[in-house]
């Protein structure tokens, strides 16, 4: 780690310069990092999805006005979550989310975006050839399924409500939430049956 242009050294340099000037504190940085490593993550979105699967009235509220509905079951609001819109995947319509200009993503419900979401290949290609990109990522959609790609170009943050897998009628809301993946809530995967 002796390349002075490496991001690791530049990050350390910046942290030193700001702490020496009393502008940030190391323990505050530690706490901020830990919060996004453990508290803010896709479990929040999974709880929202599971509730929508078991409670039709909740689902109706969620699809009509997601921002307050999300707050009923999970922490919402704040950075990258001021206005959340939920769209429902069905057997004939598939939604998938991207931000081609940066990597806007609904942090309160999904945490920070994964590598593939931030990758220039995903940002460049999913608006141009979504069917091919989804197939590469392991989701083969039949040709009769229409696709809507949501390019998050302002402060609206999109969350996909995936289809509930068959054979899950006996599961509790908590068990259902454990099935829901981050990738399904961005729209690049389906939720698999247990």
């Amino acid at each position: 780690m002796t390349d002075p242009t490496s991001p690791a050294l530049r990050a350390e340099a910046l942290e030193q310069l700001l702490t020496e000037r009393g502008l940030v504190r190391t323990d505050v940085i530690d706490g901020f990092v830990a919060r996004y490593e453990s508290d803010v993550g896709p479990l929040n979105g999974a709880r929202v999805v599971a509730r929508a699967w078991v409670d039709p009235e909740y689902k109706a509220r969620l699809l009509a006005d997601a921002t307050p509905a999300v707050k009923e079951v999970a922490w919402g609001g704040g950075a990258n979550g001021e206005h959340i819109v939920v769209v429902e995947n069905t057997p004939v319509l598939h939604h998938v989310v991207v931000c081609t200009l940066c990597s806007c993503y609904p942090w309160p419900v999904l945490g920070l975006p994964p590598s593939w979401y931030k990758d220039p290949a995903y940002r460049a290609r999913v608006v141009r050839e979504p069917r091919a990109v989804l197939a590469e990522m392991g989701l083969e959609l039949p040709p009769e399924v229409a696709i809507e790609v949501h390019d998050s170009s302002a402060e609206v943050r999109w969350l996909v409500l995936p289809e509930r897998p068959a054979g899950t009628d006996d599961l509790t809301e908590e068990e259902l939430a454990a099935l829901v993946t981050r990738d399904a809530m961005v729209g690049v995967a389906k939720v698999a049956a247990p």
Binding site: A11, E12, E37, V126, D183, A189
Partner: peptide, 22 residues
């Protein structure tokens, strides 16, 4: 597109978390 990794850590390297917070 890089293959999704369900076990991917939020910050792959320590400096990424520091850069995020800073």
């Amino acid at each position: 597109v890089p293959a999704p990794d369900p076990a991917e850590p939020v910050f792959g390297e320590r400096w990424e978390g520091r850069a995020f917070a800073l």
